[in-house]
Nucleic acid binder design. Structure first.
Lengths: 198, 198
DNA sequence: GTCTATAACGTGATAGAC
DNA sequence: GTCTATCACGTTATAGAC
């Protein structure tokens, strides 16, 4: 039996498009990237991109969904290894640091929230789903950490999860203007406000 | 002596354009609003907008500069009335609540940071100036509040100012997806983490 | 699957009349 | 100061050949 080269080629191109779309989304925003920004670097034509993703909305949705699935796998890894809450928090922060170091990308959520009134409803729905998952996970991690006397804070873990998620999202954006040091200042302060040792 | 009607007319149109541009900037972002979005509601033609602001860059810069000057006047009012640090912090939060209640607008800084890689350098410079002013003022307010035993927190007021500024910025954005309640959750938590009574 | 070619539209911007 | 008219360009998207 022979392998099916065309199927492989499809998967590769598709994945390459999604990789680039994800990067462009985080670097420039949904409105500010075009099919040309995708087809040119890949050495293909915009019609080829349309073959894989008929509309820009479909491309955006697929990009965000893949990002979300990757996040799910990431946190699943923590559950399977019985990681402690601090390791989980550090893991979430590590994702943001990765974005920061990778060309000052911002969280896709932050971009889509900023552009919220101008993006298609399908994209909004995907963003909502991602936001919910992140928030649930941060909240549970904070609650578990407090129960184990690792984190110390006043108020509900719901409120604290909102604060930390929003602060990290804002931190990545702020870093574009104020530099990477402002991002790390925020991470330091988040940890102090959880009663963690420096 | 007669008044000069044409001068007054100019000032009115100019101000009306800036009002609308500011709203559009905070609601849709810099890239997503057009001259048509401005001229149509005002009942004028796009050429008239170009008369007052030759380029979109000039319009964006003027919009942001006026926002910054208003902020300067706002904090000057606090200095002249010898307001205490808590009143100042609440004043800053009140600006954000005003944005939230006014059609889920976000902080202009947040929008411009998200679009940072796609906006003209003149706009970036204006955003930097605004960011600096806000940060200095929040930092000084936090430091004074700690000295007066009103605020209580670990770490430097520099770090804490970064955290609070980023969190409020992220809170306005998050509210678009998660609703206004998530914004107020973050405000509550910020105050708790400053050792303020509920 | 990818190409060429093109459609249909919106954009920022300008020239010149009033 | 505002208008009409127009330009040059970039955008998403489609039809049909290969």
């Amino acid at each position: 039996m022979h392998a099916k080269p065309q199927t492989i080629a499809l998967a590769n191109t598709r994945a390459a498009i999604l990789d680039l779309a994800e990067r462009l989304l985080q670097e420039k925003g949904y409105n500010a990237f075009s099919y040309k920004d995708i087809s040119n670097p890949l050495g293909i034509k915009n019609a080829a991109v349309h073959y894989h993703f008929p509309t820009k909305t479909a491309l955006g949705v697929a990009t965000l969904r893949r990002y979300r699935e990757r996040f799910q796998e990431y946190i699943l890894g923590f559950e399977q290894s019985d990681a402690d809450p601090l390791a989980k928090l550090n893991g979430y922060i590590a994702i943001q640091i990765d974005h920061l170091r990778n060309g000052y990308r911002v969280c896709p959520l932050g971009i889509l929230e900023a552009e919220y009134n101008t993006i298609p409803s399908e994209l909004r729905a995907e963003a909502k789903a991602l936001e919910k998952e992140i928030w649930f996970w941060v909240r549970d991690t904070l609650a578990a950490g407090r129960e184990q006397n690792i984190f110390h804070f006043m108020g509900t873990s719901e409120d604290k999860a909102c604060l930390i998620a929003a602060a990290l999202q804002g931190a990545l954006q702020m870093a574009r203007i104020a530099g990477a040091s402002s991002f790390f200042a925020i991470v330091r302060q988040i940890k102090r406000d959880l009663g963690l040792k420096e």
